Simulated scan of single mutants.
Amino acid sequence: MKILVDADACPVKHIIEKVAKELSIPVIMIIDTSHILDSDYSEIIQVSKAPDAVDIALINRTAPGDLVVTQDYGVATMVLGKKGYAINQNGRIYTNENIDLLMFERHIAKKQRRGGVRTSSIRKRTKEDDDNFEHSFRKLCQLALSKNI
């Protein structure tokens, strides 16, 4: 088992590494060439800036039982299809039970944006957001580890 991270805009890299170190889980962070990332723990893989290059590199490295951190519902869908685990930066665990609805909501929001409707605003990240992520991430790591034994 390993943890793969869509690390370009991931605000919880430090939490991922902290938990991974505690549980002795290897981490691979994937970024494109417009980002710089250093780590004493994680393997950093840098890919081209081509559209979806990070997503493709991440999925190509995902194996059954791996845990992926991504905010992209499409990537999460592919991870679930490969029998992996997926979570977003806010601690939402993607499952076969919720991914269809999330993909549908994404589709509707995209149609609305094309029509000129503003669908959401981005709020500043809080410590509570980080705490929620860490709690859910630990839970998912423990689940993945227990199934991989």
Rank of each mutant, 00 (worst) to 15 (best):
Ile3His: 00
Leu4Glu: 02
Val5His: 08
Asp6His: 10
Ala7Tyr: 09
Ala9Glu: 05
Val12Gln: 03
Lys13Asp: 08
Ile15Gln: 09
Glu17Phe: 06
Ala20Arg: 03
Ala20Phe: 02
Leu23Met: 12
Ser24Val: 07
Ile25Ala: 09
Ile25Phe: 10
Ile25His: 06
Val27Ile: 02
Val27Pro: 06
Met29Lys: 03
Ile31Gln: 01
Asp32Ile: 11
Thr33Leu: 06
Thr33Asp: 12
Ser34Met: 13
His35Asn: 08
Ser42Ile: 05
Ser42Leu: 05
Ile44Asp: 02
Val47Phe: 07
Ser48His: 01
Pro51Met: 08
Asp52Ala: 15
Asp52Tyr: 15
Asp52Ser: 14
Ala57Glu: 15
Asn60Ala: 11
Arg61Val: 01
Arg61His: 01
Thr62Arg: 12
Ala63Met: 15
Ala63Asn: 14
Leu67Phe: 04
Val69Ser: 04
Asp72Val: 08
Asp72Thr: 08
Tyr73Phe: 13
Gly74Arg: 12
Ala76His: 03
Thr77Ile: 01
Thr77Tyr: 11
Leu80His: 01
Leu80Glu: 05
Gly81Val: 06
Gly81Cys: 08
Gly84Pro: 06
Ile87Ala: 03
Asn88Leu: 09
Gln89His: 13
Asn90Met: 06
Gly91Lys: 10
Ile93Tyr: 05
Thr95Pro: 03
Asn96Met: 13
Glu97Tyr: 07
Asp100His: 14
Leu101Ile: 14
Leu101Arg: 15
Leu102Met: 11
Met103Lys: 12
Phe104Gln: 08
Phe104Leu: 14
His107Ser: 12
Ile108Gly: 01
Ala109Tyr: 02
Lys110Ala: 14
Lys111His: 00
Arg113Pro: 09
Arg114Met: 09
Gly115Val: 05
Val117Pro: 02
Val117Glu: 12
Ser120Asn: 04
Ile122Tyr: 07
Lys124Trp: 00
Arg125Cys: 04
Thr126Phe: 04
Lys127Thr: 01
Lys127Val: 07
Glu128Pro: 04
Asp129Ser: 08
Asp130Tyr: 15
Asp131His: 14
Asp131Pro: 03
Phe133Met: 10
His135Leu: 14
Ser136Trp: 05
Arg138Asp: 05
Leu140Ala: 04
Leu140Gly: 01
Cys141Gly: 05
Gln142Asn: 10
Leu145Asp: 03
Leu145Gln: 12
Asn148Pro: 00
Ile149Thr: 09
